[in-house]
Nucleic acid binder design. Structure first.
Lengths: 219, 219
DNA sequence: TTACGTTTTAAACAATCGTTTTCCAGCAGG
DNA sequence: CCTGCTGGAAAACGATTGTTTAAAACGTAA
């Protein structure tokens, strides 16, 4: 199928350009010219630029959610009702995140896209991701709840997002940070090296003592 | 001066729209029409859209750096050579961040702009901020170094950026998160409430145990 | 008043955007 | 044969972008 070739060439080029410059700053002409396909091909195969953006995300998130669900299945049977330790949960998530993009382009692109999805409002994107892939996060959050029964629900909610922020923010802006680190310390860090450094920080953050309540705590 | 009125009305409108939609998604016509000034006023008073973006940042970052330098001066004389505790440093930074926008619009706008500066590449912006306001961060990092002498330099560098990511990511995407939290727990969190929750997490993250080294650690 | 520098205004600029239309090439089954 | 369908190519669509131009309005000093 020559059609598939055009589609994947568009997707491969689009994901890189989106990750580099963002959605609004990347025109369809940028994509199609670099991908060596006709301009109209995007609207022909995807329908619109919005749909192309969603397709780029789906190509990462579909295999990710599938594998992550499988991983959680496996964990739940292995621990058979017993709460799964927080470290195991986080480690499993990190491993799944690392696995998926290995087959495709790079983890950098994947993380950068996640960061854009969060910050670059784009209305439709956040809704699409929430609706399409929200279930796996809900499931993960429920397992984290069982792993940290001492945490008030609202406190755990916020800490999960704090940690999500740490990881996505770091890996999303990795290129810029890597440049600074390299010129400051002359050391080049790999993504896996970074995740190794992230783990104890994330675990410590989740297990931090509860904030003292100044007036009254709603938790 | 009627000129100042136009300038500030442009800035006030621009910062809100930039924070809401991003830079590329906000046109000069959006700004000028909402600000009820002529379209050409932007190019007349600021020169270009890029310059307007930088001016928006400068209006927050100039007073911030000035106050933060003053705060650090005060801390250094109070502790007279002794290392300033990490909690004090973080607390001082948080207080300064909270102080500055109180006079103007809202903390939300300030944080959202910082998030955009990080993620929305915009080449010129990152360079501008780094070059214009890098010194105060360098000074802060040096004080953090003295406060955490047991940390390897590279480890501290990364953890500082981890924590920066946590705070900026959280407060930058606050609106979206707040919506989710509100519908999940029915509880409305204020920014100060969030910072109260952030503090123990950040401190714990900075003081986390060092990662075990799998092969060899360069730090 | 006249004159001058500053600010505002309306209009147009060229460039780029996402999308649509039109036409053509290739290949299937009747 | 030609009919129908799919994918690609070129061109044009109208809309919107940041920026510039030129003239009008303003306030102030001579």
């Amino acid at each position: 199928m020559a059609q598939t070739d055009t589609v994947t060439r568009i997707l491969n080029t689009a994901e890189v350009l989106f990750a580099e410059r963002g959605f609004a700053e990347t025109s369809l002409r940028n994509i199609t010219s670099k991908a060596k396909v006709n301009l109209a091909a995007v609207n022909y195969h995807f329908g619109s630029k919005k749909a192309l953006i969603q397709a780029v995300f789906a190509r990462y998130l579909d295999p990710f959610t599938e594998r992550f669900h499988a991983t959680l299945d496996e964990l739940e049977t292995r621990y058979g009702g017993q709460p799964i330790p927080l470290e195991v949960l986080l480690e499993s998530m990190a491993r799944t995140v690392l696995e998926v993009p290995a087959e495709r382009n790079s983890l950098k692109v994947f993380m950068r896209l996640l960061g854009l999805a969060y910050t670059q409002a784009q209305g439709h994107l956040r809704g699409y991701i929430q609706q399409q892939y929200g279930s796996v996060f809900t499931r993960f959050a429920e397992l984290v709840r069982k792993a940290t029964p001492e945490l008030p629900d609202s406190e755990r909610f916020w800490r999960l997002h704090f940690m999500l922020g740490t990881v996505i923010f770091t890996l999303s802006g990795l290129d810029a940070l890597r440049d600074i680190a390299e010129q400051d310390y002359g050391e080049h860090v790999s993504v896996r090296e970074l995740i190794r450094r992230l783990r104890p920080v994330v675990v410590a953050g989740m297990n931090a003592p509860l904030p003292e309540d100044p007036h009254a705590m709603a938790g």
